[in-house]
Simulated assay, not measured.
Amino acid sequence: MQKRRGVYNKWAKHVVLYRKASTRSHIPHTLLFSENSLRKMLSLYQMVYVKPNSGSHGVGVMRVEHKNGMYAYQLGAKRYSRLTWKQLIVSLRNKIQGTKYIVQRGIHLARYKQRIYDLRVELQLNEHREWQITGMLARVAQPGMAVTNGAQGAEIYTFNSVIASHGGAELIQSMTAQLNSICIECAHMLKARYPFLNELGFDIALDHQMHPWILEVNTTPESIPFRKLPSKAMYYRIMQLRRLNARR
């Protein structure tokens, strides 16, 4: 199977999806990282995520907070607290070391079994060259972790089991329809800008009101999480379409 082409610039993808009002309401406010942009975002939201612009697997992602005049941040399982602004900036710059980063509004994630989680929604071009959801699952973070990536120890659960815990079959149905609509609209916008795309993995956070937020769109998503589900049907469908799209 030929190597898939991807878009690894998070900021570039954000710019595409933020253009339209209908998708903007599901895209967290994001700026390129600087001392000024971090100060502005923390004053607006009190909690933000500072991410490498081209990173993956949650590596280098930091959760930064401002509370009671002091600052704190978390990288992996390690937490740095009671920092002054100057200490925060020195420490972050030491971690970033000149790499391009972005600052994203922090979404307070819904919880399952007292742990934060997000959703992975897989979209692919099907046999008719139409965008179709071929996989949905939930990634539940390890206790005390600030990210939900599998590489950082997150556990995989079925979409239905996690969503049902908030509102039963009715919520599963309405959430599925909402995610289908949002993700397909975003897929059309990204493909218009990057015509070679044929597969997308959406990382979606749900806040406490169950409002979906697209944290990131992966253009060469991994299928491994779907192999960990009790049923392998989604995994087999994803691989089938991946092979088909590689031949086109």
Score class of each variant (00 low, 15 high):
residue 174 S to W: 01
residue 184 I to P: 06
residue 177 A to C: 05
residue 211 H to R: 14
residue 118 D to Q: 08
residue 119 L to Q: 01
residue 216 E to H: 11
residue 203 D to T: 06
residue 208 H to N: 14
residue 124 Q to N: 04
residue 138 A to R: 03
residue 147 V to P: 03
residue 146 A to R: 04
residue 164 A to T: 06
residue 138 A to S: 11
residue 172 I to V: 15
residue 172 I to T: 10
residue 212 P to Y: 08
residue 191 K to V: 07
residue 160 N to Q: 11
residue 151 A to V: 02
residue 195 P to C: 10
residue 170 E to C: 11
residue 151 A to H: 15
residue 114 Q to L: 06
residue 174 S to G: 08
residue 115 R to I: 02
residue 137 L to S: 08
residue 176 T to W: 13
residue 191 K to W: 08
residue 112 Y to C: 01
residue 198 N to K: 00
residue 150 G to I: 10
residue 188 H to F: 12
residue 117 Y to C: 02
residue 213 W to Q: 07
residue 120 R to V: 03
residue 175 M to L: 15
residue 134 T to K: 07
residue 148 T to Q: 07
residue 220 T to S: 11
residue 131 W to K: 03
residue 185 E to A: 13
residue 183 C to P: 07
residue 206 L to T: 05
residue 128 H to M: 04
residue 139 R to M: 07
residue 155 E to D: 14
residue 168 G to W: 10
residue 157 Y to W: 09
residue 190 L to N: 13
residue 203 D to M: 03
residue 220 T to E: 09
residue 218 N to F: 02
residue 148 T to C: 12
residue 175 M to R: 12
residue 147 V to I: 13
residue 181 S to M: 10
residue 188 H to Y: 15
residue 142 Q to H: 02
residue 169 A to H: 11
residue 156 I to H: 01
residue 194 Y to V: 04
residue 163 I to S: 09
residue 123 L to G: 01
residue 203 D to P: 06
residue 170 E to I: 10
residue 172 I to R: 15
residue 156 I to D: 01
residue 180 N to L: 09
residue 140 V to W: 03
residue 192 A to W: 03
residue 192 A to Y: 05
residue 150 G to M: 10
residue 187 A to V: 13
residue 138 A to M: 02
residue 151 A to P: 03
residue 177 A to Q: 13
residue 150 G to R: 06
residue 167 G to D: 14
residue 217 V to H: 08
residue 178 Q to I: 13
residue 115 R to G: 03
residue 120 R to H: 08
residue 155 E to I: 01
residue 173 Q to L: 15
residue 179 L to R: 06
residue 168 G to E: 09
residue 186 C to T: 12
residue 197 L to H: 10
residue 119 L to D: 05
residue 152 Q to K: 15
residue 126 N to K: 07
residue 147 V to A: 06
residue 157 Y to F: 11
residue 112 Y to G: 04
residue 134 T to H: 00
residue 166 H to D: 03
residue 219 T to I: 09
residue 201 G to C: 13
residue 221 P to A: 10
residue 162 V to M: 08
residue 211 H to N: 13
residue 187 A to W: 12
residue 211 H to F: 10
residue 149 N to E: 11
residue 192 A to C: 02
residue 189 M to T: 01
residue 115 R to E: 09
residue 148 T to R: 02
residue 149 N to L: 06
residue 191 K to A: 11
residue 215 L to H: 01
residue 130 E to F: 02
residue 169 A to P: 13
